[in-house]
């Protein structure tokens, strides 16, 4: 495995693959984080029941959507008459960052045959996207790691939803156990790790896109519809990266 300290270059098509071994490794490496999907799934199942969603529909939503933010947002609309247009807009806003993540993954995803590409993308979520970045910089070329990590998160999310739907609110408030900060701490650790690696090659300039993205995300939060501030911040961070290197 080649240690890659230079800026990432696009992998050539023939080095990208998707194997069962990769799926297994991805699932194994994400398992500890994925366990925390269970309490969130329970919270969703409970909230869905309280919103009047029948058990089967609540479980199917977790099976086919696999997005906590979008699913919790959708619960607000579970009443007749359904405000279809507003529902679509809110879910789109809640999920729009996935377009940015997909674009970032495009050099890898588009090297796969269409079937495997969309199979992998169907299980893309925040944690396995975030984890894939340091992995692929370190030389990983098996897209199965992304899929396997997604499958681990998804299966335990569904398990949690079933428990929540059938068992009701068996755990209470997830914040009592600190579970509510799991993902933000996970993402912070990945960012710190990435920033440390980038700082070795680009010095303090590595922090420019991080500072720009954080600033834009906070400043635009009250100005833009929910979720779109993340898109604005990501694009600003991307532009800052290009301008920084070209300066």
């Amino acid at each position: 495995m080649v240690k890659n300290d230079t800026p990432r270059t696009s992998p050539s098509d023939d080095t990208i693959r998707l194997t069962l071994n990769g799926v297994w490794r991805g699932g194994r490496d994400m398992f500890a984080v994925a366990l925390f999907s269970i309490p969130f799934g329970i919270a969703f199942g409970t909230a869905a029941t309280e919103a009047g969603v029948p058990p089967l529909e609540a479980i199917l939503m977790s099976v086919f959507t696999f997005s906590g933010v979008a699913q919790f947002a959708a619960l607000e609309f579970w009443e007749t008459p359904v405000a279809w247009g507003m529902l679509a807009f809110v879910v789109l806003a809640a999920s729009a960052r996935m377009v940015v993540m997909g674009a970032v993954l495009a050099p890898w995803m588009n090297a796969l045959p269409a079937g495997r590409r969309f199979l992998t993308l169907a299980w893309m979520s925040d944690p396995n996207f975030a984890k894939s970045q340091p992995d692929w910089r370190a030389g990983e070329r098996d897209a199965g790691t992304l899929l396997g990590a997604g499958l681990a998160l998804w299966s335990l999310w569904v398990v949690g939803t079933v428990i929540g739907v059938l068992g009701g609110n068996v755990i209470g408030d997830v914040s009592a156990y600190g579970f509510d900060v799991v993902m933000v701490c996970f993402f912070t650790a990945l960012v710190v790790g990435e920033a440390g690696r980038l700082a070795k090659t680009t010095g303090y300039k590595a922090f420019v896109p991080i500072a720009v993205a954080a600033l834009v995300a906070v400043v635009t939060l009250p100005l833009l519809p929910s979720g779109w501030n993340i898109i604005a911040a990501a694009l600003a961070g991307g532009v800052a990266t290009v301008m920084r290197r070209d300066a």
Binding site: R97, P209, A214, N229, I230, T241
Partner: peptide, 23 residues
Amino acid sequence: RVTRFLDGLAISVIVAMVATALA
């Protein structure tokens, strides 16, 4: 240039999620 932009996007989207959650 596009690759650098995507590199910037990759870390920025995660930073943006953290910053939004903290805000």
